[in-house]
Simulated assay, not measured.
Amino acid sequence: MADGEDLFPDRPLIAEGEWAGWRLWQGSDPYEDLSGPYYSRVEPDGSVLAAFRAENKHMNGGGFMHGGCMLTFADYCLFVCGRHALADTHAVTVSLNAEFVGPAHVGDLIEGRGEVVRAGGSLVFLRGTISTGGRTIMTYSGVVKKTRARA
C-alpha cells in the first residue's frame, strides 16, 4: 500500500465533530450497523486504525464492556486491517481467537489495530489488539477465507 493511500474511498468521510477525518463503516453489514457505529482510517505509517465510542448498549450487567461486543469489534478489525489483502473479493471469518485482558466502560474510546501475518491464495491470517486509553483490553487473532460471490 502506498503511503497516504485511502483504503476506504467507498465509505463516507466524516467532515466535522469527534470523528472528523474518519470513514464511517455502515450499510454493508446489518449486524455491524446495529452494534456500531464503527469508524476507520489509514494512519500516516499506512496502518489501519479502527474505533468506536463505548455506549451503554455495549455493556454487560456488571457495567463493563460485554465480551461479545469486543469480539464483534475484533471481527470488524479483521476485515478493515486486512482490507488490502481482501481487495476485490468476498470473505468470511473462519476462525477468531481472543484473550480478554482488561475492562472498558461507557464513554471509553475503543481502538483496534491489526496486521496481516500471512496472506495466501484463499486464507488471510491476522492478529491485533483492542485498547482504550493506551491500555490493551483484548488481543485477537483470526483467519479470513476469501470466497466467491454467490450467483
Rank of each mutant, 00 (worst) to 15 (best):
R127E: 14
V116I: 08
K145L: 07
L96E: 02
P103Q: 12
A15R: 13
D45K: 10
E43Q: 12
E5L: 14
A104R: 04
G82L: 00
A50G: 07
N97K: 10
A91W: 03
G46H: 06
V94A: 07
T89I: 00
P30D: 07
L123S: 14
V94K: 00
G114S: 07
D10Y: 10
S95I: 00
V94E: 00
R41T: 06
K145C: 04
R41V: 06
E32F: 15
Y39K: 12
G102Q: 01
G142W: 03
G17S: 12
G134Q: 13
V144R: 01
L7C: 06
I137F: 03
E18T: 06
G61N: 08
R83P: 00
D75S: 00
R41F: 08
F100E: 05
H66K: 06
H90D: 11
K146Q: 02
G128W: 04
F8M: 12
P103A: 15
F52C: 11
Q26D: 06
A85M: 12
Y76N: 04
V106N: 09
P44A: 15
V144Y: 01
S40H: 08
M59F: 06
P12Y: 02
L24T: 03
G142T: 04
Y140E: 05
P12D: 03
Y38F: 15
V116S: 01
G128N: 08
G68C: 10
V48Q: 04
G120R: 01
S131A: 13
K146M: 01
V80N: 03
S141E: 13
F125K: 08
D29P: 02
E43F: 01
T129K: 07
G114R: 05
T129R: 08
G17R: 14
V42I: 13
G142C: 04
A2T: 13
D45A: 09
D33C: 02
V92M: 07
R11W: 08
A51S: 14
V106F: 05
G27S: 08
R113V: 08
E115D: 07
G142A: 02
R23A: 02
R23H: 02
E55L: 14
A51Q: 10
C69R: 13
K57S: 13
